[in-house]
Design a protein around this nucleic acid. Sequence first.
DNA 1: AAAATACTTAAGGCATCGCTTGACAATTGG
DNA 2: CCAATTGTCAAGCGATGCCTTAAGTATTTT
Lengths: 109, 109
Amino acid sequence: MLNQLDRAFQALGDPTRRTLVERLAAGPASVSELAGPLPMSLPAVMLHLKVLEESGLVISEKKGRVRTCRIDPNALSLAENWINARRRMWERSLDRLDAFLDETAKDER
Amino acid sequence: MLNQLDRAFQALGDPTRRTLVERLAAGPASVSELAGPLPMSLPAVMLHLKVLEESGLVISEKKGRVRTCRIDPNALSLAENWINARRRMWERSLDRLDAFLDETAKDER
DNA sequence: AAAATACTTAAGGCATCGCTTGACAATTGG
DNA sequence: CCAATTGTCAAGCGATGCCTTAAGTATTTT
């Protein structure tokens, strides 16, 4: 029972899939175009695309016999925001520690 | 042969490890404190911490018999920046498409 | 209609992951 | 010193992940 954030991070954890995202960030592409430069079979790339699609990072639609894939920037933002929130939280906790240490130093004077 | 970005994203892909990061974002904690609320054995939590540490997201140091863990916000930024760069790239490519479509519409007038 | 293109599905192999239990330090408090 | 606390190491097991090949299906192209 994995949520979207799990899936997104897990998807980005694989170098092949990050390469795919990187390629798609430059613009939409077909499955063959994506698979072309990669050192693996086309079915393998399809599986990666499936993972990316289930994570919400990538959207695809089929017209005729070619499936065109594109990035969904919303899903990217979701992951980005999660990290950002935690980083900010951590920085605030550091600030509180600094303030506490300053207080202590003042008291000791 | 995984690089730091792979490890970081893979680490964040696991719900337990994101819970750990979430907890640590509020401030440092010992291994037992981290394991306490979690529905698994302490060795299991240790393994998760090892993954987080190898990914660079978490730093720990041992004093006496207690190991204190804290977040390294730099590693968080690394992942955040990667996503941000791709999202921006994608948005730029959308802008170019819009511009192109506008041009085309003008030509057809 | 036959051939080529572009994917899709299925079956299977091997590695890694997440977790468990059990045994084993190392440190500290009574 | 003895015992409790806190963490570490190791073996192992079932599930998942990544990839392969082989055999489809659907859609153009010739």
